[in-house]
Every structure is written in C-alpha cells, then in structure tokens.
Design a protein around this nucleic acid. Structure first.
Lengths: 256, 256
DNA sequence: GGTTGAAGTTGACGTAGCGTCAACGAATAT
DNA sequence: ATATTCGTTGACGCTACGTCAACTTCAACC
C-alpha cells in the first residue's frame, strides 16, 4: 500500500517551510543529534526524506507540549510506549505545578498592586514568616487568636518550602550582629542593640506587622518554644533571651 | 524615631545568609547595577547598610512575583507608584496568559498520553489544521457537519496563532514538489505524484484523519474556496486543480 | 568560461540569571 | 609567621535557538 519507490528528498529550506521551523532550528537539531538528515551531499548540504519528516512531526508535537529537547529525544528513543507515557506523566505533573505557582503569583501581584495603590510601601505586604507552614501555626494560633493567623496564613499560601526557609534565614544577619553586641556586654537598651532590633522588626514587617503586644508575644515565643529557640539561637539559649529582652525594650519604646 | 547613628554595615556573606540569596547573586546584582553596595573597602570588599537591605527586600519581593531583573529595576526606579502598578499590571496579564497556556498544554499532554496508552502513534492526535481559527470554520461546518468540526475545534483550542500559521505552512513542501511534477507533465495518478499526496495526507493526519469522502471534500474545498485557493496555490490556480485531482485519485485508491 | 544570485555551509556571539569552578588577594586566628 | 577563612575578579555553563559574518556550492545566464 505504501510503496514509496522514487525516493524523494527535500532540502533544508523546503523542510523548514513545510514544517514552520527555521533552517537554523533544523541545523541545531542536527548538531545535537535530535534529527539527522537522511544524507548529506558533497558540499555538506543536508537532505531529508520522509522518515525524517515524520520524526520531525513527532518532535514538533512534543515541543508544543512544552518538553525540552532532551526529553523529546528520550521519548522518541523509547521503544515501548510505556516509557514515553511515563515521561509525559512527569511532564504533566510539573506543568500542573507550574500552573499552580503562576496562580499564586497572580494573587500576590494583585495584593501588591492593591497595596501600592493605597499608597503602601511594598515592604509591608504579601508575605509572612518566622513561622513555618505547619510546625508553629498551632502555637501562634493559640497565642494570638485565629483571625490574625488566618490572615497571615492566607498571605503565606503563595509560598514554596524554599521561600519559607529563605524567609526564616532573614534572622541570621540580625542574630550575628546581636551576638557580637552581647559579647561586648552592651545592654539591650543601647542604641546599637535597638538598631539591630529595628532591623529585625523591618525584616518581620516584610511578612507581617506586629503591634507592641504581638511583638512582645513573639519575643516570649522565641524563648518559650523549643523549636524557635533552637532554630534562632543555634544552641546559645542566653542569646535568645538577650534577643527577647531587646525586643521587649524595642516594643515598649517604639511600638504602639 | 528612626535614629540609626552608629552606622552598621554587613559583609556580602552576612547579607546573603540574611536574605537567603547567594553572594554570587549579590555580586550579579552589583554588576548589573540593580543593587550597589553602600561602599567598597580597600580590597574591593562590598559593604551593605540598612538602605541596601531594604532595597534588597523589595528586589526579592518583586523577584518572587516572577518579574525579570530589568523590570524590577524599572519598578524600583519609578518615583510614583502609578508607574510601578502599571508594570505590575502588565506582568499580571502575562502571568494569566502563561497560566492559561499551561492549562491547554496539560490538556494536550493528557490527550497524547491517552492516545499512546491505546497504542496510538502520536502522529494521529491532538491537533487540527488546514483551517484557521475563524475564517474557514463556518465553511467546514457546513460541509462536514457540526460534530466533526466541534471535535476538531476542541483539539485546536490549545493553539496560538503562530501554531496555526505553522501548521498551515505544512502544505509548502508538498506544493513545491507538486509544482515540479506538474511542470514535467506527470499525470496525477503517477506514483511520484501519489507519493507527494501521501506526504500531504500524512501532514494532514498530524491534525485530523479524514476518510475517503472527507479527503475528497477537502480537495474540492481547496479549489472552490477563494481563500484556500489563494493561500495554497500562491496565484497558480491550475496547480490547485492539479492538487485536487491528485487528492481525489489518492482518496479513491488508498482511503476507505 | 566567467559571473551572478540564491541557497547552503560552519563558526561565533547573544539571550536570563545566576551556579560553579579557578586563581588570586586580604583579613583574621593561632 | 602561617593557616584558615572570606573576599575578589574573570570565565564558562545552562535552553533553544536568533542573528550576523564569512565562505562555498550550485544552477543559470551571457
């Protein structure tokens, strides 16, 4: 039925026009071994035949699906359909994950726009930190009531684990500076200490804007809760207490 | 209230740990002028102060929103919030577009997986072509009934304009070869002509699998419809008629 | 046979946002 | 004085090609 006797070949530009890709793309596919021409003439010119066109069709289909060229190569190299389906399944998973991520980004962008339109400062919105997704939420909920936490959790919804880790590491700089000051015996009410605490408060405000009472509560929580204490003090409990006292002094002096 | 007298500075690694980015990133931001250190010491070491940390916070926030570094620079350079909101609005638009695109890709991937699992060949699914989104749909609908068209349109839903253009350009190669054969006076039933038509049929099958009657109807449509005729023949109407006859011969010989 | 034009070839650089060496200088602890 | 740590400036690598640049080939025309 499929008698293709007078073997016909196409030049690179013919294939390009036919398939909608550029000749550069075809050369690239040749260079990376994804699509080899049927044969090359004396002058090095590439010639493609039906088999290559069919392979190109499959390549382009998979490309439309968003697969990378290496993944496409794997799919086409898979003898059994099961392996190909497996790759596609993984691809589907990450498409879905990406879509969800974009959804969350849209929400966050809208938040930020609203804040800016209200004359906000862009440092006082859209995030929440110091508490990871799960471990500290109950604690905080018990301390400050459900409303504040729901609000914060809602803002946090757009986060990945890395982002949460990243946010928590924001304590690092402040703690380093604080440790140095404490080592020098500087009292917590000293301007230098309070400056560091101000920095810490600013970092916190990246995510949440605690009032005096809430900030004092946070200070206590840092000391009282084992997980916070270990995380923040890195083994130096006295440093965390120093932080707590400094935070309380800051709250009394600077917060309403 | 915000008296920060004993100006404190942080080294690049302190800032890195505090913010969760790497020092390489901070150097990069310096190199592209996105975040300049407060000052650099003799040995060239970078030192950051509170102002830079605040700017970094804003940079990271915007980065989380998915903006590019140049866009971030623009937002931060915008004196009035309106300009910033404008950039964010545009960004939101393309986030939404991307999300929709991913949605469509997911659907297509699922289609392809289903086809493969059923033992299909991957060249016979997921697309539709020859007819653009709008101009030819009514025509086709009148000819082949609503059901076939709805089906095809549903498959086409995942397409962008470029993809449609690209798909249509698939005719190019076949037409070039066909024009040469016709110039040589080769009759439409000749094996060489039928081979080209087979190629054309394969290309069509990328998108849709017409039976004998449908393929004959498509052949007529090519000639009867002005837009098809101009598009395909590029001014050579006789060539389109040659194509039609060849397609009809192919349909009679090879299709059920 | 010479020339011209179209179509082809192989580099090579550019894109975004850094990661990841390499090779070296400087500040700090011992 | 020296070992260790922290910092510096290149430079290449990553995706999937776009976009020159500098040549070579091939068919056609005179």
């Amino acid at each position: 039925m499929n008698d293709t006797e007078p073997t016909m070949s196409w030049s690179i530009n013919e294939v390009a026009r036919a398939s909608g890709v550029t000749s550069r793309t075809l050369r690239h596919y040749h260079a990376i071994g994804l699509l080899e021409p049927a044969w090359t003439a004396d002058g090095g010119r590439r010639h493609y035949e039906q088999e290559q066109l069919l392979r190109l069709q499959r390549i382009l289909l998979l490309r439309e699906l968003g697969l990378g060229l290496d993944a496409i190569g794997e799919v086409l190299a898979a003898q059994d359909g099961a392996a190909a389906v497996d790759i596609l399944r993984r691809h589907r998973s990450w498409l879905l994950a990406e879509r969800d991520r974009l959804d969350r980004l849209v929400a966050t962008v809208e938040d930020t726009m609203t804040t800016l339109e209200k004359g906000g400062t862009m440092t006082a919105n859209s995030m929440f930190a110091g508490f990871e997704q799960n471990p500290y939420e109950d604690e905080a909920r018990a301390r400050w009531g459900d409303h504040a936490i729901d609000d914060a959790t809602a803002r946090m919804r757009g986060w990945s684990k890395e982002q949460a880790d990243q946010a928590r590491s924001g304590f690092g700089a402040a703690m380093t500076a604080l440790a140095a000051l404490r080592a020098d015996g500087v009292p917590v009410g000293d301007a230098r200490v309070q400056e560091v605490i101000d920095e810490h408060y600013q970092w916190i405000c990246l995510f949440w804007t605690p009032n005096r009472e809430a900030y004092q509560g946070l200070a206590d929580l840092y000391v009282d809760d084992d997980r916070f204490r270990r995380n923040i003090g890195q083994g130096d409990d006295a440093l965390v207490e120093y932080l707590r006292d400094a935070m309380k002094a800051y709250a009394v002096e600077r917060l309403a």
